[in-house]
């Protein structure tokens, strides 16, 4: 167990370096002079402001060899210094932090919704395998991921907000500040984000449950006369949770990706919307920092998932 954790942590280090280097290298991929992009200048303006560009290039170490540049960039990144946003001229970190909280709230809510849909649906599918219910659930799960989420979002706004007027069309208020309005505003975005995850999780839950239900100890439990419901929900599901946790870990990254679309449509001030608006204003320092934040959250989530897995599953320890 301990050895496994150490190995996993050791593996984490090169990944961390790789992720940061990949994000750093976006600068190298920029067409034209990267300094101009970092300053938000067009090439023409950069020629006019050549002196400033030169000074900035030196300050950022962009006149140094690539490994040195990377080192300097990493040093600044570790201190939370990603430069200033081109659009707002404020430090990038100040732009990102408050939005990270918002995205976290929406993502956690979406994960909960995913689980609330997927666990019952997956278990039902496994227990009544090949029944009409199972087929319907499977069909819905496949169909759910075939609809572009932005299409779904617009349709929901037109129906629930404009047509039936049961939900506010867009916006965000933290449910901790104003529970009623906050939750109402969250319904549509969270359903759309959670729906996609539910589709994947349902399939995973179903196959994990099928696996567990065919195991001897479940059969034994049933044979011993334990009530079916208890066997399924306590014994079987507990064991089926392991692979589901893995998928949950991967969902974190996908949720952050999906938030770009959902946050843009529902005008939620999270990092997804910030990424999209930064791309349209070519706010490169913000784009770079956001990609880094998302990349890091994903690898950290996957590390934590692996650790949780190891703690929960005794077999891992002997590998």
């Amino acid at each position: 167990m301990f050895a496994y954790l150490v190995r996993r942590l050791l593996q984490f280090i090169p990944v961390l370096i790789g992720v940061t280097f990949l994000v750093f290298s976006l600068t190298l991929l920029l067409p034209g002079d990267p300094v101009a992009s970092l300053l938000g200048l067009s090439e023409g303006q950069a020629q006019v402001d050549a002196e400033m560009v030169q000074r900035y290039r030196h300050e950022l170490g962009l006149d140094q060899p690539v490994p040195v540049q990377y080192g300097m960039w990493l040093g600044r990144a570790v201190r939370g210094d990603f430069g200033d946003s081109i659009k707002t001229r404020r430090p990038v970190a100040d732009e990102i932090l408050p939005r990270l909280k918002v995205t976290a709230q929406v993502s956690v809510a979406a994960l909960i919704v995913s689980l609330l849909i997927a666990l019952p649906a997956g278990v039902a599918g496994a227990v009544w395998r090949n029944s009409w219910l199972d087929r319907l659930i499977t069909m819905l799960a496949v169909a759910a991921v075939a609809v572009p989420s932005f299409w779904l979002a617009i349709m929901m706004i037109l129906l629930f907000a404009v047509q039936w007027q049961v939900l506010p069309p867009s916006g965000f208020v933290s449910p901790f500040d104003d529970p009623v309005r906050g939750l109402k505003l969250m319904v549509m975005p969270v359903l759309i984000l959670g729906w996609e995850g539910a589709a994947v999780l349902t399939r995973q839950t179903r196959s994990a449950m099928l696996e567990v239900l065919s195991q001897d100890y479940v059969r034994t439990a049933r044979a011993k006369g334990l009530a079916g419901r208890r066997v399924i929900w306590v014994h079987a599901l507990k064991n089926a949770m392991l692979p589901i946790i893995t998928i949950l870990g991967l969902r974190i990254g996908l949720l952050l990706g999906g938030s770009a679309i959902v946050e843009t449509i529902f005008t939620i001030p999270g990092i997804g919307r910030l990424l999209v608006s930064s791309i349209s204003t070519r706010d490169f320092p913000v784009i770079q920092a956001l990609v880094l934040v998302i990349g890091l959250s994903t690898v950290v989530a996957s590390l934590l998932t692996d650790i949780a897995y190891a703690l929960l599953d005794p077999r891992i320890r002997y590998r």
Binding site: V19, L22, L256, G257, A260, I294, G295, T298
Partner: peptide, 9 residues
């Protein structure tokens, strides 16, 4: 490292 960046991002 590649997986760290969700497809859309």
């Amino acid at each position: 490292i590649q997986i760290a960046f969700p497809g859309l991002i």
